[in-house]
Amino acid sequence: MSTTPLLQVRDITHYYGARIGCRDVSFDLYPGEVMGIVGESGSGKSTLLGCLAGQLAPDAGEVLFDTRSDGLRDTLKMSEPERRMLSRTDWAFVHQHARDGLRMGVSAGGNVGERLMAVGARHYGDIRDQAVDWLGRVEIPADRVDDRPTAFSGGMQQRLQIARNLVTGPRLVFMDEPTGGLDVSVQARLLDLLRGLVREMGLSAIIVTHDLAVVRLLADRLMVMKDGHVVETGLTDQVLDDPQHGYTQLLVSSVLQV
């Protein structure tokens, strides 16, 4: 693992009017590392993710990203074209609902190809070959390449969304409840797939979820949020096996045992 962090987050604070969205959140993310953020609904984890991914403007703080071309840059101070460029090359965002992250009126191949075309690919044959290759990697048969996502099951849509995001070889992936709304066997296969891709591509990822099993499987480190604050942080196994904060203890003990 490299010594320079890929992402340095400093005192990110976001208010919704007088209410706290998230407050004074700081952490470092190293290349190849997967960070989990857990907490109950309304704890500020999606707000935080939105601030990091440039979808919300935080009221205070810095998000420093180690860009390929000119090193460490504060993404919040970047111009919008620069930030958008970053978000379709080095970054990826996997939405909870595949519908938010896919173009439902465009074929699977077109969905995967969009990011390639957005960064300047203009050779149909190459784009299509890459699309088929990526569909294969997320276990979607090649003969479905011209079908629209509306004809796909929920799990397939989610896998298509992942393929669409990873096709440009991003270094940092933001995931908002990637397994939400899927049944457990589909969840398991998706997690397997994600784990494989993260290892194989050396991706860094920030995963927001309320499902502790997901972070147990995927995340190296864990951050627990409550009421907009980070209450506990540490290695995933350590936090889950030996929770220190009262809320984390409650969270861990609330998991249903089958």
């Binding site: 074929s107 149909y124 011209d146």
Partner: peptide, 18 residues
């Protein structure tokens, strides 16, 4: 304003694929 025209090619891609 940001010259983001990748989507226009998605339409042409769809034409060719169909």
């Amino acid at each position: 304003s940001l010259e983001e025209y990748g989507l226009m090619h998605v339409k042409l891609y769809e034409d060719i694929s169909q």
